[in-house]
Structure formats: structure tokens, C-alpha cells
Design a protein around this nucleic acid. Structure first.
Length: 501
DNA sequence: ATCGGCTCGCGCAA
DNA sequence: TGCGCGAAGCCGAT
């Protein structure tokens, strides 16, 4: 270990590693601890690579703690089920590799306090995930102060490290240019796709204190027994989804997308009836799937290698990747639109407020703050999908039932909330609440980009000046209905009573 | 069906 | 200083 320089000799790019505290590494401790909080997967994971690297250098076993608490904002059956599905998959993969994996689901608020510290007592150092959003940055900072050992946060969020640039971009165009300039070098430093294969690592023993005071998640919970979830003090008003979380489900969703949908992506993606969207966002949000894995799949289908990349980095939307148009359109979503959100959150703690909007949009919305609204709905009316607008109601019902809203309709959904709220600030609050509570990929940088876009972020002014919107880009249900194929969508999520309401 | 104007700010060329 | 251009729009003119 003496000659290992953790910065220059690591397989993980230094820009992805952040020392959260200045405590020492303890080479004589029992194991290396990976506290898995965002990249909840066993491959394509820089934090796991880093942890394995330390374990090998120090000749210690690796212990992985994947914890889920009950008192975090919006904890519900929906998100718990999704994360626990992932735990079951992770348990199997780590078991096969001979790594001590500790899935912990807190049975009551506060019960999990002290677990990380107790496990860290025997750790040479702790590695965790660096996620720039929600309560995670605060939680990691607090842990850094408490832990008696070195805590490193590793960024496995995207293909570009969140600190690849030194500031936030306020236009997608600028970020696209940065992606085009640097993709090749970052792609060359991708994480291991099968880090657990051919490992020979000794197994760690956890202290009796830990095993008795914080028993790992029960087989009932991991196995998906509804009673086990019902017993937890979480929001039972947000029901589980019809699709599973976890790595297996992520892989099959990806395969479906690549085999059946990618080819028609560009043409069909705006049409709700065409079912052309990837459905990958929930898996990306909870770290069950990596952008690297998706790109590898696209590259294979497109027979693509980085040599095909264009040399001009001018921020143009086509002609850079040199893939088929549909694949290029999807790459733009994945690399530019997903990662520009990560970039924003990484540099702005204030990523979701009205004050974070561009000056021009704050100004125009404020100027039209007192304009008459066609109708004002309460949050509860919106939540229950009870408006006069069938398209909006359908989108809201899709959110309630499926934990997502179709890409195109999500924009209209947000714009209408602005139209029906007494102030833009209230509208923003309501939109974020609904998305955070019900969307599987809520509480994600990506989601905040999408919502704040409706209020002007990453966008520009569009005339003519209209009531309420001012020069914010306007969208209407009438035009949406004319432009899109959505009859089946309306039938599926239409104004008929359902179990939820 | 397609086109320009509506309207704002940024980077870049000059 | 001027020019070109940008997530998905809308509307009226041709």
C-alpha cells in the first residue's frame, strides 16, 4: 500500500473522487466499507471500482452497506419497493462474488441511526456515492464530520464527471459543446462492466453489535411480500408500481428499448400512443442502470465506435455522434439533457427555486403575476386529477399510476399548472411536490430540469406576450391534441373512476 | 404543408 | 457592435 498514490495511481479518474473529510485511512482495520446510496448497482460503478481497488491494495475484504431509511422526504411504498427490488438483485450478485453485502431497511424512524458509524469502526475507510441532489449532499457531509475515518465520495452519475466543467451551464447548447469536446476522453475512462467477476476476496465478519442491533433486511422484504412493506411507517398513499426496480428489470427494459423502440425513437417519441420512450429514467435515478451501460448497448446495435465521432464541437444536435438519427436523438437526451441537469445541481445548491430561474423569465412571470387565471385549482384538486382538461387529467393519472408522465405531455402538464396557480412560485412548488411524491425519477436533477424548463430554464423567450406566461414558451392542450397521437392514451388514463381515486 | 415573426441573451467574429 | 442561433410552440399567411 505504501507506494499506492490514491490520486495518480487509481483506476478511477481523480475528478470523480472527493475527500469529504480529512481523516486518516487506517490500514490495520478489518475491511473497506462501501456505503451505497445512489449508484445502487454492482457494475459500471466508479465507487465500487474504487472500493475494490482499496480492498485489493490493502488486502482487506469489502463490505457493502446499502441502506434505506423511512423518514426521508417522500418515502413511500412505491420508492421503497423499487429500491428493495434492487437490493434483492444486489444481494444475489454480491453473494456470488463472495462480498459481504448488508442491505438495511430501517423498521422505524431513527432506528438506523448509528449503523454507519458502527460499521465504520472496523473500516479502513468509507467510500460512498457523490450525488448532487435531494438530501444526499447534506447527509454525506454530516457523515464526513461524524466518521472516525476517511470518507471519500465517488461520482458515478454520468459519462461526464459532475465536476468536468468548473461551473453550471445555463444553456443546453453550451453543455452540448462541452460534451462534444470531452466525450472521447471520458468514455475512455469508463468503469468496469463486470467488476465482480473472478474476485478472490476474503469474507468480512461484522460485529455482533451490528448484527443484533441493526438486523439486515428480512427475506420477506427482499422477496417483495406486501405485508412487510405495509408494516413500515412510510407513505402508503403512493402505491407500488406495475414494473419492478432493480438491475434485472433495468437490463430487460434496456434490451426492450434497444431491440424494439430505438429504431423509431426520433419519429415516435412525442406521440403518447406510440410507446416509444425508453422507460429507463427510473433505473437511472436509483442507480440501477448506468449511462455507460446504455451507450454500450447503443454502440453495439449501431455498430459504433468512438472513431466515428465528429471532430467539430459546435453544439450542433446532429452529425456529432455519427449514428443513425434516432440513436443520435437518444444520445442527446442521455448525454446532454440528463447530464446538464447533473451539472446544474453540482454547482447550484439552489436548483429548484423560482429565484434560480433566468432573470428574463423571473421578470416576465412576475410582470404577469396578477393576470387573471382561467381557473384556480387547489393542490388537492390537481393531485386527484380533477380539472376541466382531459389531457391534463390523463397525464396526472399516468403519474399517479405509473410513476411517470410521457415526455411530451410532461411539458404541457407543467405549463398548465402555471396557468392554474395563483402565482408562478406556487405553481413551481405544486409541480415539484407532485413530481417528487409520485414520479419514480422525481427528486433527481433530471426532473428539476424538466420542471424548471416549463418556467424558462434552458429556454428562451417566445412572443407574443401572453397573459400569465408573458414571454415564457406557451403550450396548449388544444394544439397538443391536434399534433399528437393520443387517443389510446386518453382512453387508458381517461376520466373514468379507478381504484386510486 | 411550410414559413416567418414573435422575443431574449450569449458566444463569437470583426 | 453585429450576427447567428437556440428542446419539443403558436399563429397567421401563403
Amino acid at each position: 500500500m505504501a507506494r499506492f498514490n490514491a490520486v495518480t495511481d487509481s483506476v478511477v479518474p481523480a475528478v470523480r473522487v472527493r475527500a469529504v473529510n480529512q481523516r486518516a485511512l487506517r490500514a490495520n482495520a478489518k475491511y473497506v466499507l462501501y456505503w451505497m446510496i445512489a449508484a445502487r448497482r454492482t457494475h459500471d460503478n466508479y465507487a465500487l471500482d474504487r472500493a475494490l481497488e482499496y480492498a485489493k491494495r490493502l488486502q482487506k475484504p469489502l463490505v457493502v452497506l446499502e441502506a434505506l431509511r423511512v423518514a426521508y422526504p417522500y418515502a413511500s411504498d412505491r420508492f421503497h419497493r423499487f429500491v428493495i427490488d434492487g437490493m434483492a438483485d444486489n444481494a444475489e450478485a454480491f453473494q456470488k462474488a463472495g462480498i459481504t453485502y448488508y442491505p438495511y431497511v430501517e423498521p422505524e424512524a431513527g432506528a438506523g441511526s448509528g449503523l454507519l458509524e458502527a460499521l465504520a469502526k472496523d473500516a479502513a475507510l468509507v467510500i460512498t456515492d457523490d450525488f448532487p441532489c435531494f438530501f444526499l449532499p447534506r447527509m454525506v457531509a454530516a457523515a464526513g464530520k461524524k466518521l472516525p475515518v476517511l470518507l471519500e465520495a465517488v461520482d458515478s452519475n454520468g459519462v461526464l464527471p459532475i465536476r468536468a466543467l468548473d461551473k453550471a451551464c445555463f444553456r443546453a447548447f453550451d453543455f452540448r459543446r462541452a460534451v462534444q469536446k470531452t466525450f472521447a476522453e471520458h468514455w475512455a475512462e469508463r468503469p468496469a462492466s463486470a467488476p465482480l467477476s473472478r474476485l478472490s476476496m476474503s469474507k468480512a465478519t461484522l460485529s455482533r453489535e451490528v448484527r443484533e442491533r441493526w438486523p439486515s433486511a428480512s427475506a420477506d422484504l427482499l422477496g417483495g411480500k406486501p405485508e412487510a412493506l405495509a408494516a413500515l411507517p412510510i407513505d402508503h398513499g403512493v402505491p407500488v408500481l406495475s414494473y419492478r426496480g432493480g438491475l434485472r428489470a433495468a437490463r430487460s427494459t434496456l434490451t426492450q428499448f434497444l431491440d424494439k423502440k430505438l429504431e423509431r425513437y426520433e419519429e415516435d417519441r412525442n406521440h403518447p400512443d406510440k410507446a416509444a420512450t425508453s422507460g429507463l429514467s427510473p433505473y437511472l435515478h436509483f442507480g440501477h442502470l448506468s449511462a455507460h451501460r446504455i451507450i454500450a448497448g447503443i454502440a453495439e446495435r449501431e455498430d459504433w465506435t468512438p472513431e466515428a465521432l465528429g471532430t467539430r464541437a459546435r453544439g450542433e444536435r446532429t452529425g456529432f455522434w455519427n449514428m443513425r438519427p434516432s440513436a443520435e436523438a437518444f444520445m442527446d437526451q442521455l448525454l446532454v439533457w440528463r447530464e446538464v441537469g447533473l451539472n446544474y445541481c453540482a454547482f447550484n445548491r439552489d436548483y429548484s427555486s423560482f429565484a434560480s430561474l433566468p432573470t428574463w423569465s423571473q421578470k416576465t412571470l412576475t410582470e404577469h403575476k396578477t393576470d387573471a387565471r382561467p381557473k384556480l385549482y387547489t393542490r388537492a384538486e390537481l393531485e386527484a386529477a380533477r380539472t376541466y382538461d382531459p389531457i391534463w387529467n390523463a397525464a396526472q393519472r399516468e403519474l399517479l399510476r405509473e410513476g411517470r408522465i410521457h415526455n411530451y405531455l410532461r411539458m404541457l402538464w407543467g405549463k398548465k399548472i402555471l396557468e392554474w396557480s395563483k402565482t408562478p412560485e406556487h405553481a413551481l412548488q405544486t409541480t415539484i411536490y407532485l413530481n417528487d411524491r409520485y414520479a419514480v425519477d422525481g427528486r433527481d436533477p433530471n426532473s428539476y430540469s424538466g420542471i424548471l424548463w416549463c418556467f424558462g430554464r434552458y429556454d428562451r423567450a417566445w412572443g407574443p406576450v401572453r397573459p400569465i406566461f408573458g414571454t415564457i414558451r406557451y403550450m396548449s392542450s388544444e394544439n397538443t391534441e391536434k399534433k399528437l397521437w393520443l387517443a389510446q392514451y386518453l382512453a387508458r388514463y381517461g376520466d373514468q373512476p379507478t381504484l386510486l381515486e
